[in-house]
């Protein structure tokens, strides 16, 4: 029994995957990779060719309503004229549950998400994190057979997102249904998901467990998300951590086989170190960790021309 999806939206997405029922699949990829289009098509909100099968059920020809999905939208789309309680009760009531029972269900869900005391508030009176909790409660209150979350942490500040991520993992585990989670955050993908689907330019670049994807990323984007440099040559990948990259101003002498001339494009603190992003003349964008002392000594700021070298012993090939 599995979720079997094939989505074709000409010019934007052509992707297929199969995942066991009850699992959480994280969909990651850069902006414009087609993540939202993919989940939109699974929900029936985006017109697409292909098929969507959930276990024995064929959802392809069904209307959005009849697919029995839960959808958490990127911009939440809480009904602004209804209270948090009425928003969450909207689903059960639409499915024919009497008003009182629907409101009781809604109250239970708000409690479970820790916002029972906000039931009477309108969406405009909620903070970003609170509104996202209401949106998650609203989607789960319909008891969907398939839950779709489109960047549920987008637009939340880091502290709120971290707290919500932990809760979300907890709720998804309790939910037990099949989940598609669109995210641009490696943490979401690696901590919450059972499987990771990597989209690149509308196509599936990789589909595997979080451990597989983190250890052997198939795209530069994912590699950077998980903090690895990955060079691709046909079917062969060369990976090395940013800490193994040596940065210098002069062309390195000696035997180092892997070296590039590049320009620093970004520098930001990363733990004890300073993480540099550099574009290279020969193509790949690399990340390198240097000590603050070295960064000061070499004046490593965006725009600075540098040489990047990697010791062969730090490289993994697959």
């Amino acid at each position: 029994m599995s979720l079997d999806v094939r989505v074709v939206v000409p010019g934007r997405v052509e992707a297929a995957f199969t995942s066991p029922l009850g699992e959480t699949v994280a969909v990651i990829g850069p902006n414009g990779a087609g993540k939202s289009t993919l989940v939109g098509a699974v929900a029936g909100l985006v017109r697409a060719g292909g098929h969507v099968r959930l276990g024995k059920e064929e959802l392809t020809e069904r209307t959005v309503r009849d697919r029995r999905i839960g959808f958490v939208f990127q911009d939440k789309l809480l009904f602004p004229h209804l209270s948090a309680l009425a928003n969450v009760a909207f689903g059960p009531r639409s499915r024919g549950t009497p008003r009182r029972a629907a409101e009781q269900t809604a109250r239970d869900w708000l409690e479970r998400l820790g916002i029972g005391d906000l039931a009477g508030r309108k969406p405009g009176q909620l903070s970003g994190g609170q509104a996202q909790r209401v949106a998650i409660a609203r989607a789960l209150a319909t008891d969907p057979q398939l839950l779709l979350l489109d960047e549920p942490m987008a637009g939340l500040d880091v502290r709120v997102a971290t707290a919500l991520r932990i809760e979300l993992a907890h709720h998804l585990a309790a939910y037990g249904g099949t989940t598609l989670l669109v995210t641009h955050d490696a943490l979401d993908a690696l901590t919450i998901a059972d499987r990771v689907l990597v989209l690149d330019e509308g196509r599936v670049a990789q589909f595997g467990t979080p451990a597989e994807v983190a250890a052997q990323p198939a795209t530069e984007h994912v590699a950077q998300l998980v903090g690895l440099n990955v060079l691709r040559d046909g079917d062969h990948f060369t990976a090395f951590p940013p800490s193994a990259v040596n940065v210098s101003l002069d062309e390195p002498a000696g035997s180092a086989r892997l070296h590039w001339r590049g320009t620093v494009t970004n520098a930001a603190p990363h733990g004890e170190a300073l993480r540099l992003r550099a574009s290279t003349e020969s193509g790949p964008e690399l990340i390198a960790d240097v000590t603050p002392a070295a960064a000061t000594e070499l004046s490593l700021a965006p725009g600075r021309a540098v040489w990047l070298t990697v010791k062969e012993t730090a490289v993994r090939r697959y």
Binding site: L45, V64, F71, D75, G91, S94, R138, A139, T142
Partner: peptide, 10 residues
């Protein structure tokens, strides 16, 4: 988009 949200809610 609110119509779409309502449809997903049944």
């Amino acid at each position: 988009a609110y119509d779409a949200a309502a449809a997903t809610l049944g």
